[in-house]
């Protein structure tokens, strides 16, 4: 390998990778016991719901869209699930029903974008308001609780030394990767981002691919809602707020482009880790929660700006 190709390789890494490196050095130098296994496992567990949501978001961004209803969909799913369990429905009924609401929301997003031709961001922004309404009505505006063993099993117990929550996350990663790389659905999604005309020429319906993609994203959100509710052991009508933007940010930082159908779920891993490592480090450094929203927002926005700047330079 020549030095030039090495330089090129580093240059083509998603920006998230070297920002993570910078952050690890900074936090390692400024906090005690940073490089411990338990700290990194807790980062991974905290990152799990965002990562699963971001798997779905990756597919939408590949199609040149965005789904801004994901956070609200998480809110709704956690609330509906716990409320159904409060009504003494068994887990085996309550969980699929609650997950079904998120899948349905995704399907509706797909219909609105594909058939009514709305730009994805405005369709999903409208859906965000609708789903938040459902979450607030179902929970009456505050957290809902119901004792159940499932929370601790998912969030705390392990299989082969790895917590269940991470097994499910890994499963979602491989499912999304296989769908994108090895199925016709994946090929259609990627060609929609790159060259939608070719799709029509080949006789595929772009509408169908859009609906499938949003529905799959709804399913990923449902899984993420399940993990999130297990982690906070409750249903909460605002617990998912911010996931919609953080997931878009994670996808962009992971190198998936909004323009030419390039990228994939592998890069998204780094985007999510970047956001979670940033958050975790602020907690480790005892930064007051009053400052956290602003710091995270500024760093994420800065990273997106830097990414856009680098891409423009490369284009010129």
């Amino acid at each position: 390998m020549t030095t030039k190709s090495l330089g090129k390789r580093i240059g083509s890494l998603p920006p998230a990778v070297w920002m993570i490196a910078v952050m690890l050095v900074f936090y390692g130098a400024n906090t005690k016991n940073y490089f411990t296994a338990s700290n990194f496992i807790s980062i991974l567990i905290q990152a799990a719901p965002l990562f699963v949501v971001a798997c779905g978001q990756t597919i939408i961004v590949l199609m040149q869209g965005t789904d801004l209803s994901l956070g609200a969909s998480l809110n709704m799913m956690t609330v509906v699930w716990v409320v159904l369990m409060q009504k003494s429905l068994p887990l085996s009924v309550a969980l699929p029903l609650a997950m079904g609401t998120s899948v349905l929301a995704g399907y509706l997003n797909g219909l609105i974008v594909a058939k009514m031709k709305l730009p994805p961001f405005i369709a999903t922004l409208g859906m965000q308001n609708i789903l938040n309404s459902v979450a607030l009505v179902a929970s009456n505006g505050s957290s809902v609780y119901h004792e159940h063993a499932i929370y601790k099993i998912i969030a705390k117990s392990s299989f082969l030394g790895v917590p269940y929550i991470l097994w499910i996350t890994i499963g979602c990663f491989f499912l999304t990767m296989v769908l994108l790389k090895f199925t016709r659905f994946g090929a259609r999604v990627i060609s929609m981002g790159g060259n939608p005309e070719s799709l029509k020429v080949a006789g595929y319906s772009p509408d169908l691919a859009t609906i499938q993609a949003f529905t799959y994203t709804g399913f990923m959100t449902a899984v993420a809602g399940f993990l999130l509710a297990c982690r906070v052991e409750s249903g909460n009508p605002i617990v998912g707020n911010g996931f919609e933007f953080n997931s878009v940010a994670a996808v962009l930082l992971g190198g998936t482009s909004m323009r030419e159908g390039r990228g994939g779920v592998g890069g998204t891993v780094f985007g999510v880790l970047l956001i979670q490592i940033l958050k975790n480090g602020l907690v480790m450094m005892n930064v007051s929660s009053i400052y956290q929203t602003a710091i995270i927002g500024i760093v994420v926005l800065f990273a997106i700006m830097l990414d856009a700047y680098i891409k423009r330079r490369q284009e010129e």
Binding site: M116, K117, I122, A123, M127, N129, I130, S133
Partner: peptide
């Protein structure tokens, strides 16, 4: 907020 959501989707459509 649900009303606003529905209104905006219908109007943009």
């Amino acid at each position: 907020s649900m009303a606003v959501g529905i209104v905006i989707i219908l109007m943009v459509w």
